[in-house]
């Protein structure tokens, strides 16, 4: 005869991890680190505002039009970097490539406030390449068309690859609370070059 279970008991059995209790010290250290990183970002935003004119004068693209509710700022500088098979003409200051794969690049803030697991995207900037049809609000910029969509605190920008690049759609997904704004993201996405080794992700 087959055993019969009520749902609560079944969930209870499934929820048991059998793992020993963890010392709260690691959670506290992680949380305090994130709080200090947030404070540093707020200070940096002030410095970016003061230095704006000088930054523009040396040919960088700066993110200046922060709203009062956006405490953090991310600066894009005209410096090329590689995340094979992708190349970027602009570099976000204070952010670094965490993982690069033929179908995606993950970029994280240097302050350690995000997960070390490259498959966890919370708080990160993710560049993806796929064949899905772009949709959302249309923005035209520098002769190219971009689509803006998003919810739950994240925004996704999409654009078609250039002639000569692997055919498809390249996207950037970014968190709303990490100092990015749409204008700088359009600039950043427009700076992405998709190399021959890129593969379209599924989904």
């Amino acid at each position: 005869m087959s055993p019969s279970h009520d749902l609560t008991r079944a969930l209870q059995a499934a929820a048991e991890t059998g793992r020993p209790a963890v010392d709260p010290g690691a959670d506290l250290a992680r949380a305090r680190h994130a709080m200090h990183a947030r404070a540093r970002r707020r200070v940096r935003t002030g410095l970016v505002g003061v230095a704006a004119a000088a930054v523009l004068a040396v040919g960088t693209v700066a993110v200046l039009d922060r709203s009062a509710t956006d405490p953090a700022g991310v600066e894009l500088v005209a410096q090329r970097f590689e995340a094979t098979p992708y190349t970027f003409d602009l570099t976000p200051q204070g952010w670094s490539v965490q993982a690069q794969q033929p179908w995606a690049v993950t970029i994280v803030p240097d302050d350690g406030s995000t997960s070390e697991d490259p498959d966890v995207f919370v708080g990160k900037l993710v560049i993806m390449f796929d064949a899905n049809r772009p949709d959302g609000r249309v923005v035209d910029h520098d002769g190219r068309r971009f689509w803006v969509s998003g919810d739950s605190g994240y925004t996704t920008l999409a654009t078609r690859t250039r002639a000569g690049e692997p055919s498809g759609v390249v996207r950037i997904q970014y968190p709303a609370d990490a100092g990015w704004d749409e204008r700088s993201m359009v600039d950043f996405l427009a700076s992405v070059h998709v190399g021959a080794g890129a593969q379209q992700g599924s989904g």
């Binding site: 966890v120 919370v122 993710v126 994240y154 599924s202 989904g203």
Partner: peptide
């Protein structure tokens, strides 16, 4: 969880 699952959906669903 909802945030992370949505973000990771492309990779995890496969």
């Amino acid at each position: 969880f909802i945030d992370e699952a949505r973000l990771a959906h492309r990779r995890r669903e496969t």
